[in-house]
């Protein structure tokens, strides 16, 4: 089997199923009574945390490729990014449909008046833009260079997601800081790479 076939026929389906794992976990928690006395709050937070995790997974692909040297990893980036969007959609649905029960007035007040929801919505809108431009046709239409530029917005979405999580919690809690630290690490890796490249370029220009 060629590497391409291995990725398409075996690895991708496996990763796809793994990405649905959190929903399986949720079904198990529902069955075993693990949704707490406030299942709506639990569901909201569970889905939000998984959305953020998948953003981090997608962001981890580039550094992992650099560290392992396996270029095939890039083939999974879109899949992970789309699953991040999938969990964001579920997170938003549970907020709108269960937590607020389609009280659009209250939702609008939340978006405009509560900073942490505004920040969360910014992240969601960015991921929406990235998701709809993730098809081959869209990449062609936009052009590789512009598409790359557009998809750099995921950095902003990741930061906004972390901020949203941090601001939602009362006091300074550990989990939001852990997510923030992970995103900082992944963005820092890119920054270091970028600075190295620039220095090399300027050295070449001098020579």
């Amino acid at each position: 089997m060629t590497q391409d076939k291995l990725i398409r026929r075996v690895l991708k389906p496996v990763v796809w199923v793994l990405c649905l794992g959190p929903l399986g976990g949720l079904a198990w928690l529902a069955y075993s009574g693990g949704l707490t006395a406030n299942p709506i709050e639990f569901l909201n937070r569970y889905l939000g945390e998984w959305a953020l995790k998948f953003v981090i997974f997608a962001l981890a692909i580039t550094p992992l490729r650099g560290l392992t040297g396996w270029a095939g990893l890039t083939r999974f980036r879109r899949l992970l990014g789309l699953f991040a969007f999938f969990y964001v959609v579920l997170h938003l649905s549970s907020y709108v449909g269960l937590d607020q029960y389609f009280d659009w007035n209250a939702i609008w007040l939340d978006i405009t008046k509560r900073t942490y929801i505004t920040v969360g919505m910014v992240a969601a809108v960015i991921l929406l833009a990235l998701a709809v431009t993730s098809t081959k046709g869209m990449i062609k239409r936009i052009g590789g260079k512009n598409w790359n530029r557009l998809h750099k917005l995921v950095y902003l979405a990741a930061a906004a997601g972390c901020l949203h999580f941090f601001m939602m919690r009362k006091g300074v809690q550990l989990e939001p800081l852990m997510y923030g630290g992970a995103v900082l690490l992944l963005l820092g890796y890119r920054l270091v790479g970028y600075l190295k490249k620039r220095r090399r370029k300027s050295r070449l220009a001098v020579a």
């Binding site: 949720l26 529902a30 069955y31 075993s32 009574g33 649905s93 549970s94 269960l98």
Partner: peptide
């Protein structure tokens, strides 16, 4: 009612069809 609504909303997954756990 909550479980029913959750099921209708489509995010209740199995919760709607499985009896609530005994407390």
């Amino acid at each position: 009612q909550f479980l029913r609504t959750a099921a209708i909303a489509g995010v209740g997954f199995a919760a709607g069809s499985i009896a609530p756990p005994a407390f």
